[in-house]
């Protein structure tokens, strides 16, 4: 016998359960809080429109993470294109001065790490973002992306190998 679900209560439960991890993933991809809130809002509006198609809270959470992650990457890609165009016009590459202090170096490293992640192939980038930015387990990543746990394990490792190569080439200081 199927009971009619209280959609309002379902929405609230999924929101409470999913918002923290969704916000963290989106924030770390998009890079600023206002944009992350905007994207989360958009993701939950889309969830409201599609919630009747999602059978349970787990599926809803994975769906939201997929949508939020994709919205954030699309935004990040647009921003990257705009930044590149701006730099080309003004010929002002974002490079720290030789006398830069630690904070600038820190910002530069953060940017290099984010750029290296955004250059990964989509299959590797998705798993590493959900792992390192969302702190999801391999099982949760597998459910979110619709792949096997074994596949997640292989992709996480390949993503880290690639990141290590790229960051080493960029002379990023690795913590001991």
């Amino acid at each position: 016998m199927s009971m009619k679900r209280d959609e309002r209560a379902f929405f609230d439960a999924v929101y409470t359960d999913s918002f923290p991890v969704l916000f963290k993933v989106v924030l770390r991809i998009a890079g600023d809080e206002d944009t992350a809130e905007e994207i989360c809002h958009e993701a939950f509006i889309r969830f409201y429109k599609n919630s009747t198609r999602l059978p349970d809270a787990d599926q809803a959470r994975y769906w939201l993470l997929r949508v939020g992650k994709n919205l954030a990457f699309n935004y990040s890609k647009r921003q990257g294109r705009e930044r590149t165009a701006y730099q080309r016009v003004w010929n002002e590459p974002e490079r720290p001065q030789e006398t830069a202090d630690a904070a600038v170096l820190q910002d530069e490293t953060t940017r290099l790490v984010q750029d290296a992640i955004s250059r990964l192939p989509k299959t590797l980038r998705d798993v590493i973002v959900l792992k390192e930015y969302g702190d999801l387990s391999y099982g949760e990543i597998a459910s979110t992306l619709g792949i096997s746990v074994g596949n997640v394990k292989v992709r996480v490792h390949r993503a880290r190998e690639r990141l290590a190569r790229e960051l080493e080439e960029a002379d990023v200081h690795f913590p001991e």
Binding site: K24, L27, R28, T110, E132, A164, P175, E176
Partner: peptide
């Protein structure tokens, strides 16, 4: 591998969730 994971985590943004 452990260092890469650490550097990504160190340089990720955090905010008041």
């Amino acid at each position: 591998i452990r260092a890469v994971s650490q550097i990504v985590r160190v340089h990720r943004m955090d905010a008041d969730v």
